[in-house]
């Protein structure tokens, strides 16, 4: 018996998200009185794999194949299913990100295992197995009963704190025989957002709305982001207008994020926008209209013209950074 996490890597490296999954998996394994195994697919050095041990992973099953360097949801699913069966997995945990969302549902059908997707905390109970997840785009939480022998969970990013629990993990190579016929996705071109902090990874996000008036006014937002090591985001009309790239659009129809701190600048706070950001630990609103709904979601607010307030914030941050 075991709990399994899918430890995704980015160019051979894990990131905080991977360790959140490990910390979460370790806790679930403890609740079930079993051990924690991680599956890694792709080229990852042993020293990197060992880092998973710091968060309680007892065994790492690693596999690398030329045909698996890019995500192929079908091939990845069958691979993880094989490891899950071999390890007698009771619970399989993945991130609720693009990769997790494309593998977990397939795995659910393949193993006939109930899936709780977008889970935001530890199982509420394990007998019966009930998880909590956000529904109606953040307007409620639901308790979902997973009614099968094997369960699958996708965990929201930034919803579980890292917990160290150092063990020396066993590294096991799992070799796969694959031919081209099994891997159907052919990648023609890759464009990476080099050097930028990913919106979904960022602890601080600075977001601008239609109240910013034009693309030319973004300079202070970019400057603030740079100073705070933050990612930039925007509301939907802003990306629709082409003031900012589509990847930055947050909300119900864009990205769903949960940073520690979210600055909503010139954003009215429509329910569809809040759907993407309401899990932020703190929301700061800057808006010239004191009755804007964003102030109901925010913990800190400034009623004022963003063009006047932003330079002051930039100065204040420079001040604390030089101290």
């Amino acid at each position: 018996m075991s709990v399994i996490i899918y430890a995704e890597n980015w160019d051979g490296k894990f990131k905080k998200l991977t360790f959140e999954l490990a910390s979460y998996g370790a806790k679930v394994a403890e609740m079930l009185g079993t051990s924690l195994v991680a599956v890694s697919i792709g080229k990852v050095e042993e020293s990197e794999l060992k880092k998973l041990g710091k968060y309680g992973v007892q065994k790492v099953v690693t596999t690398d194949h030329e045909l698996l360097r890019h995500l192929d949801s079908k091939a990845y699913t069958s691979l993880i299913a094989r490891v899950a069966q071999k390890e007698g997995a009771k619970v399989i945990v993945m991130a609720s990100n693009n990769a997790g969302k494309s593998i977990a549902p397939r795995l659910s059908v393949k193993l006939k295992a109930a899936l709780g997707s977008g889970v935001n905390k530890l199982p509420l109970t394990t007998e019966p197995f009930v998880v909590s997840k956000k529904v109606f785009s953040g307007n409620a939480f639901a308790h979902l009963l997973l009614n099968t022998e094997v369960k699958i969970i996708t965990l929201m990013q930034n919803s579980f704190d890292l917990a160290e629990n150092a063990v020396e993990p066993v590294i096991e190579n799992f070799s796969v025989e694959l031919d081209g016929a099994e891997v159907k996705t052919v990648v023609k071109d890759v464009q990476k957002h080099e050097g930028k902090i990913l919106l979904t990874d960022a602890e601080i996000v600075i977001s601008g709305g239609r109240g910013m008036k034009s693309a030319d006014n973004w300079q202070p937002i970019l400057e603030l982001a740079e100073l705070l090591n933050a990612a930039t985001a925007c509301s939907r009309p802003v990306s629709d207008e082409g003031w900012r790239p589509h990847e930055e659009h947050t909300g119900q129809t864009g990205k769903i994020i949960a940073p520690n701190l979210y600055f909503a600048i010139g954003i009215s706070g429509a329910t569809q926008h809040l759907a993407g950001v309401s899990s932020s630990k703190y929301i700061v609103a800057i808006n010239s209209d004191k009755s804007a709904p964003i102030f109901e979601a925010a913990q800190y607010g400034i009623v004022g013209d963003a063009m006047k307030v932003l330079p002051k914030l930039v100065e204040a941050v420079k001040e604390i950074k030089t101290k």
């Binding site: 308790h143 009623v303 204040a316």
Partner: peptide, 29 residues
Amino acid sequence: LSSFVAYEPPQPRAACKFIDPENAAQLIE
């Protein structure tokens, strides 16, 4: 394979603290 057994509304957030726009540095503090 699964069923929703209960719903709960989101936790109410603490009320917004307003900061004077002339004194924006206080927000950073």
